[in-house]
Structures are given as C-alpha cells and as structure tokens.
Design a protein around this nucleic acid. Structure first.
Lengths: 330, 330
DNA sequence: TTGAAAGCGCTAACAA
DNA sequence: TTGTTAGCGCTTTCAA
C-alpha cells in the first residue's frame, strides 16, 4: 500500500505531528530531527496525500480553467502558458471547454467546486453571470482572462482591444485603404475592437459604413461565409481591406478571396487578431494583431495565486498592449 | 460554510449513514426516506466533497493526461475529445505537457499520483519507461494513446502508422512520382511510417534512397529547414514529392517550397499526417493522412474508465485506419 | 522540542 | 430500515 505519515513516523521514531511539521516546514524542532525525518521520507518515497490535507482545509493546489474551446489554437496556446506557470508554482490545472454553452458553464463551475479547486481562471464569456457572482460572493478566488467584462468586479487580464482595433484599421488607412470592413465575433472583446474601428475612421476623417461591420462566430468557415456574402452584395462596393477579429476568421477570408481569384494583398489586404500559429501557416503569412499570450498567461496565474494566498481579490485590471505583426497579407 | 453531510442529515432528520447511502445509491431504505433526503440535498444545494470520499478509498474522478505539448494542434484537438468524453462520463482531466522532457515526465507522474488521479492517459513518449512500469506494477490504470510502444504491456489506441506511411507513399507513386522523400519525427510512430515508406517502394519496385529519409523534430521551422537542406544538396536529385510525418512539418515544406518558387503540386507534391486544423489553413489545402482524432479520444477514455472500474487492464491494442484526405497539395 | 488527541467530511461494517 | 461508530491521512492545538 501507499506509504502514509504513520509509516514515516514509525520508521523515523517520531510522532506523526513531527512529520507533519517537517512536511509543512512549520513549528520548531531540533534540526537533527528535521533532517532525520526528511531522510526517512525520501527513503520511503513518501508523498503526502493532497486529499487528506485538503480535507483539513488546506489547498488542493489545483486551478480550474474555463475556456470556450481548448482545441482553438488561441486557447490552447494560452492554456499552455497557464499550465507551465501553474506547474512552476506548484499547482495543476483542470481544463474545461464551455463551448460558451450555458449548460456546460453551470456544470463545470459546479464540478470544479466539488473538486475544491483553489481558484478559477475564466477565459470564456458566461451566459449566466450570476454563476460567477456566486463564486465571488463565496469568496472563491476568480480571475478573468481576455474578458474585460465591466459587470464583474474581479481582477482581469486582457489586451487593449480598443487599441488593437484602432491600430489595425489605422494601418489599413496608412496603406491607402478607404473601404475597410470588419468581421467581428459575438464576444465582448469584439465590441471594443469595433469601437477602435470607428475611432480610427473618425481620426482619418472617413465615414464609417455600417454595411462594413459584420458579425459572426469564430471559425474558418464562418469567415469564409461572411466574406462571400459581403462580396456578392451588389448594393455596396466591396472593401479593399478587411480586419478580422481573430486569425481563424481571417483565414476564412483568405480562402474565400483566393477562390474568388483575388490577389492578396494587392486586391484585398487582410489583418487578423491573436497571432496564433495559424497566422504563420498561410502563404503569404497573415498580418495580425498579436496578443502577448505568454505574458498574459503567466500574469493571470500569478494574480490568481496571489489572491488565493491573500484570501482576497486585488481587483486589478491589466491591459496589455496589442502589437501589430506585419506579414504578407498587407 | 460549505454544507456537509451532517447538515443534510440533521435537516432531513436522519443519520449521516442514510444520507451517504442515498448519495451513493446503495443500501436499502424506505423509498420515502430516500426521496426526503434527496429533496433536502437539493434544497441545501449540497455537494459531496470529492476529497473526503477519495480519502476513504473512493475514486477522485479525475484523469491525468500527459501529452508532449497541449499547444500543438494535434494534441489540443485530441485533448478536446478526451475532455468531452471524460466529462460525459463524470470525470475531469488534468493536463500536463511534458515537452518530451525527462524531468517533466517524472515531475508530472509524481504530481498526478499525489493528486490521486484514477488513471493515466499517456500520449507522450517517455524517456524513462520505468516510471510507467512503476505505475503499472502498482496497479494504477494506465493507457497509451498514439504510442504503440511494444515495451509497455498496456492497452493502446493508435492509428496504423505503417499503413498510413504506406498509403501516403503509394498515393505519390500512383501520381507518377518516383523520387519521394520522407521527413520523419523523432518518435516511435515515425519509425513505423518509415517502414510503410519502405514497403511501398518495395511494392512499386522502386529503390529506396536513404538520402530521402530525413529526421527532425516536429515543428514548422524544422520542416522548412529540412526542406531547404534537402533542396540545396547537389549530390542527389531533389524529390518531386514529399511525405511529412505531421502537418506542421508539411507546412514548413510548403513555405520553403513557395519561397524557392516551386509550384505546388506541380513542382512538388506534399502529403502531411494528422489532419489537424493546420491542414485546412493552407492554400492549397494540405493533402494529409487523417487520424480519427475524435474516435481515438473517445475510445481511449472509455478503455481507461473500464480499466478503472474493473481494476485490471484489458491490454487491448486498438489500431485505427488512417484515411488519406486529398486536398490541393497533391 | 516533541507528542497525544481531536476532527476535517465521508464510507461501510455492524448493531439495533 | 436506520443509526452508531471506526477509520481514511492529514493538521493543529495543547500539554508534557
């Protein structure tokens, strides 16, 4: 059977209390005793049970991560940096893909609570915000990632979406484009990027055409579909540049454009968002607004762990600068 | 505070034993009692503590998933189907990216044991196989995914790599190619795919040039690099077709080829492996050998849960058929 | 400096 | 049919 604290205590000739103290590095005792116990633990290959100590109100050293879809490169890249940082700091992470589906959201929040995760990282929008409010009320550490939702009063890490949208459009303008469409997702972040889009039009003194503001869900086929619809309209001029609110949408646009025989970037310039691996797989490479995924992942873990330790939320709101990566599509 | 079994018992006017029985659906009791308790649990929003029951030797309902890198689309897509199936069956999954790094392998196996996961899904090769042997010896359920390693006697789910290699090369042959290179990863699966490569040459009566058998690690830049090296050699003819052992390598090749001004598939035909999202992002789309990721993920979870329940390994070895998806690069 | 003992929330054998 | 009780492996107070 598994070796327990009793086995160690007996072998080391001390009480379990003493062993517990050396495990947790607490209490006072003769240095020689501490060493002897440490030795025995190593010898017996003793691993304290997380279950038992969690039962005593200690932490489980586990984080819950809620993302829309882990198979989406943006979130899997994010998950990777979160995982790494969490492990560096002695925690593991349970991941859950909500599909932005109300039922799953509820199910997973419940599940993670039952597993007594020490805290939540929420990188998915929630239909039922009260689920999260409930966690906050119960003083369960909860931070949000890429979700700068003003209705939740917690710490947040995200990219400056407004600025990202503004810069993408400004870049299109600076390249001489005047007919620029935006394809947005159904997400809070896209709302801000659309404001950035408007603001850039304002700044350049170009009128903003509502017909150029499109919305859909995030996927390659959706991007392609929206592109096709846009370019088959006869009532408006086709745009000469497109800003897609994520790389997948942008790729859908690229595919649609190539099928239609358009040359990129000559006939149509395209900017994506996120700078996932997908932006590097296309030829030409996709110009895109990069989110500092590695920084953001690390930061959110650090904030969450801090809040777990402190027992209260710092409610900081961290905005990273987006960074336009120019590749071949512009 | 959190509501415990005692609170429920008191409110329902029964003993904790009775409550425990209704939680686990065991024992006999008056139906009305069972209903009353159920009612109370719901009313109080009672969630049994996984920690406490795990302490009593029950399951933690958590699986450990070891992959080389969750941010690699192949593994993130796999992780997604595993996550879904696991949740469907009432389990959550803790993911760990080993980077095929010996130290991390050890660290994560230890970690997951401390967390008392009910079983392991290993989708990463291991430097130190004895770590896994140890788990097996201790009767900890462990199954392998995409790792058909003969030295470990456990249940395995993978694709028929030999056949996949054979079919990719045969397809190149059938398109008239005779100078075909293979770019393999440093992984067990690649060994089998190389055998498939050889076998196809045998079948078509074409001599196998060792210079056409290349190895590297799995990434887009590696693929590109190997391609460039191959095409700058003067001592051998450049191949007219390439089989890359994963989609990333294939994309590296595409990028290299385009830079070199080669037309795809006219000057160079390319086949990848895995059929991840990456195969759909290139233009032209990547012809690739598909692994049935969704099927495999679901199957491996089902096998593992079965073994957890049975308490012993069925040691089945399931081989799925690869499926050549023809797109634009051939 | 060390250890005895109570108790965390639960399960399961056994008694009533 | 229902309840009493002894742990599971650990932490922590308090006493020695």
């Amino acid at each position: 059977m598994k070796v327990t604290i009793y086995d160690v205590a007996k072998k080391a000739g001390v009480s379990i209390a003493t062993v517990s103290k050396v495990i947790n590095n607490t209490g006072n005792m003769r240095e020689s005793t501490r060493q002897k116990v440490k030795e025995t633990m190593k010898q017996m290959n003793y691993q304290p049970s997380v279950m038992a100590s969690a039962l005593m109100g200690k932490k489980t050293e586990t984080l819950g991560l809620l993302v829309p879809d882990i198979s989406n490169p943006f979130f899997s890249e994010m998950a990777r940096t979160i995982e790494d940082r969490a492990h560096e700091r002695g925690m593991s992470v349970i991941m859950c893909s909500t599909d932005e589906n109300a039922e799953k959201e509820m199910k997973y929040v419940e599940l993670l609570q039952r597993k007594q995760v020490d805290g939540f990282i929420v990188a998915s929008s929630f239909h039922d915000k009260s689920l999260l409010q409930e966690l906050i009320k119960n003083n369960i550490p909860l931070v949000m990632l890429t979700q700068d939702d003003p209705s939740l009063d917690v710490s947040k890490v995200s990219v400056d979406d407004f600025k990202g949208g503004y810069e993408a459009i400004s870049y299109h303008f600076s390249n001489g484009h005047r007919k620029i469409a935006i394809i947005a997702e159904n997400a809070h972040s896209s709302i801000l990027r659309i404001y950035g889009y408007r603001e850039a039009h304002e700044a350049y003194g170009v009128e903003c055409k509502e017909e150029y503001i499109l919305r859909t869900n995030a996927s390659i086929p959706s991007g392609k579909k929206v592109f096709e619809e846009l370019f088959s309209r006869t009532d408006i001029d086709p745009p000469t540049a497109i800003f897609a609110c994520n790389d997948q949408l942008a790729i859908g646009v690229i595919q649609g454009a190539k099928e239609r025989g358009l040359e990129i970037p000559k006939d149509l310039a395209i900017i994506g968002f996120d700078n996932t691996i997908l932006a590097t797989t296309t030829v030409p490479g996709l110009t895109t607004v990069a989110q500092p995924i590695a920084l953001m992942g690390k930061k959110i873990v650090d904030i969450l762990i801090e809040e777990i330790k402190e027992g209260k939320s710092s409610k900081e709101r961290i905005l990273y600068n987006p960074d336009l990566i120019v590749r071949g599509t512009t």
